[in-house]
Write a protein that binds this DNA or RNA. Structure first.
Lengths: 225, 225
DNA sequence: TTTCTTATTTATCGCACGATAAATGTCTGG
DNA sequence: CCAGACATTTATCGTGCGATAAATAAGAAA
């Protein structure tokens, strides 16, 4: 049937060729790529990405010179966009106790990243190139863990003015890593009840508070000024 | 040069065709697959596996009917083999304090799994199919975390005879997950000093001891019998 | 040595992928 | 309404992959 063009395999007429602004089209492609790569990893084919975006595969190469550059666009979309500026405000509000502050922050933060798309893309990316993991490590350490150590110091009245030491970061890293791992675990065996995440965050902070209080007590008993 | 056969690209004569016992050959193939898949993921090609094993690619299909079955053999080799029976003995030796017991166990355990091959393969496998992760989850919970909770209960004199509850497992999971995450982090930014791992384990156990002791105190003050 | 088994190699198929070139059709400015 | 710009599609190339069939040769048994 040589005259029958632009019909879907179902027999329904295919959507007519729609011209879209380059910005919107690029946006649509990245969205489709995020979905596919989160599910199949970065070995998902450009043809499937194109299908998800409702276009043909070669058109993709008008917007991205290579598959690698598309992957970088996915990185930027998912990872760079993931830090909400309002979180900084929560962490710095000294009118609120440290524990409540971080409880509030971690509730919002885990809500954002404990999602299949974020977690799976993050793991795929970390396995592909170590740079992504190193970048995430830096963000967590500077934006979350160091503030936590500093604010807790002040609360305990031992703001020695020193910089945060690597040793001081170990305990926060342990708990942050534990929460991350909880997110991964939850994702595989189906999302747990909503209250469980809050309980997990609560326990993590409880442990940190107990640990730091205990350490402060040890120091003053060993070194009575 | 039609008569020149079996020569390496370098010009050196290729190793002569060696007949090997099926067991040894299979073993060699799995070893090569472990190495390649740990580095490139399970999309590493069967041709590269064969090259690593020093054979041609079609021979691989005499030992494994498909690539998928080779992957399963890799699973079995790396994950099933990874639990040492002597670890159970360490965990059950009540002559030693709980904390020392688990310190010793985690030192050996992390030594075994904090290695690129294990960690990368585990991540690749978890992303491929959720079954692997579910299986690992089960092993950790039954073999490590439940024993930890039980033994700690006894040590605190509150062996209520109840089964270990999901709520009781949250704290150990948090710390175990934190250690796992530490292993991942260490692997990316180069291995840390040997002492650091021990320090991390020590802190994790310290936190658990403090937390459980604190909870026990709360319970007895709220519910004085 | 000769024969038989089977481990191993050579040759090849079909397919899906990333990427490119050329043809086609849609929107916009005059 | 017409013409140019360019978004989009069709057609296609080269490559690497998983897998199969047939040819070859190494070692064991007689």
């Amino acid at each position: 049937m040589p005259t029958q063009k632009r019909t879907h395999p179902t027999g329904a007429p295919a959507p007519p060729r729609r011209r879209m602004s380059p910005e919107d089209r690029k946006e649509a492609i990245v969205s489709a790529a995020v979905e596919l790569f989160a599910e199949s990893g970065f070995d998902g084919s450009t043809r499937d990405v194109a299908r998800g975006a409702g276009i043909t595969q070669p058109l993709l190469y008008r917007y991205f010179p290579s598959k690698e550059s598309l992957i970088e666009a996915v990185y930027a979309r998912v990872f760079l966009k993931s830090w909400e500026p309002e979180w900084d405000e929560i962490l710095q509000d000294r009118a609120v106790p440290v524990r409540d502050r971080f409880q509030q922050f971690y509730t919002a933060y885990t809500e954002a990243i404990f999602q299949p798309v974020w977690m799976r893309l993050w793991h795929f990316a970390s396995l592909r190139d170590a740079e992504v993991y190193g970048w995430y490590r830096e963000v967590v350490q500077e934006q979350i863990l160091k503030p936590l150590v500093r604010e807790r110091r002040i609360e305990l009245g031992r703001n020695s003015g020193f910089q945060v030491t690597p040793a001081e970061l170990e305990a926060p890293w342990l708990l942050h890593g534990g929460l991350l791992n909880y997110g991964l675990r939850q994702q595989v065996s189906g999302p747990a009840a909503p209250g469980d995440r809050a309980a997990m965050i609560d326990q993590a902070l409880e442990m940190y508070m107990l640990f730091t209080a205990s350490q402060a007590a040890d120091d003053t008993s060993e070194d009575p000024s």
